[in-house]
Simulated assay, not measured.
Amino acid sequence: MSVQEGRFSVNYWIDAVSKKDADAFAQKVSVEQTVEVPLEVVPAGYVHGVILGKVSSVEQSGCGRGFEAKISYSNDA
């Protein structure tokens, strides 16, 4: 876990066969870990712009299987 001004980041290992699948799963995690409602109903403004988790990166895992995702969260979440 790393910390930056107003946000902290968490690294996740995702068992997916493709980058596309890993990206989609990381996005779902970022929503589930913050607002716990479908992304379509998250209001614009503070909740969407600040509270909602943000996927920073999704990269192939160094072990050759799966992907590593980095997601940042607001300290207010």
Rank of each mutant, 00 (worst) to 15 (best):
Val31Met: 08
Phe8Val: 01
Val37Asp: 07
Ala44Asn: 13
Lys28Thr: 10
Phe25Asp: 09
Leu39Ala: 12
Val17Cys: 10
Lys28Ala: 13
Lys20Pro: 00
Val37Leu: 06
Pro43Lys: 09
Gln27Met: 13
Thr34Leu: 02
Ala24Asn: 06
Asp23Tyr: 05
Lys19Tyr: 09
Glu36Pro: 05
Ser18His: 08
Leu39Ser: 14
Val37Phe: 05
Trp13Cys: 07
Phe25Trp: 10
Leu39Asn: 14
Ile14Gln: 01
Ser30Arg: 06
Val35Lys: 09
Asp15Pro: 03
Glu32Ser: 15
Ala22Val: 00
Ser18Val: 08
Ile14Arg: 02
Tyr12Ile: 02
Asn11Glu: 14
Val31Lys: 01
Asp23Arg: 09
Ile14Lys: 05
Glu32Phe: 12
Ala16Tyr: 02
Ser30Tyr: 05
Val41Gly: 06
Ala24Gly: 05
Lys20Gln: 15
Trp13Met: 09
Ala26His: 00
Pro38Thr: 03
Lys20Val: 14
Tyr12Lys: 07
Ala16Lys: 03
Val42Asp: 01
Trp13Asn: 11
Glu36Cys: 11
Gln27Tyr: 11
Thr34Trp: 03
Pro38Ile: 00
Lys20Gly: 11
Ser9Gly: 11
Glu36Asn: 13
Glu36Tyr: 10
Val37Asn: 06
Ala24Asp: 06
Gln33Trp: 11
Ala44Pro: 09
Gln33His: 10
Arg7Cys: 01
Pro38Gln: 04
Gln33Met: 12
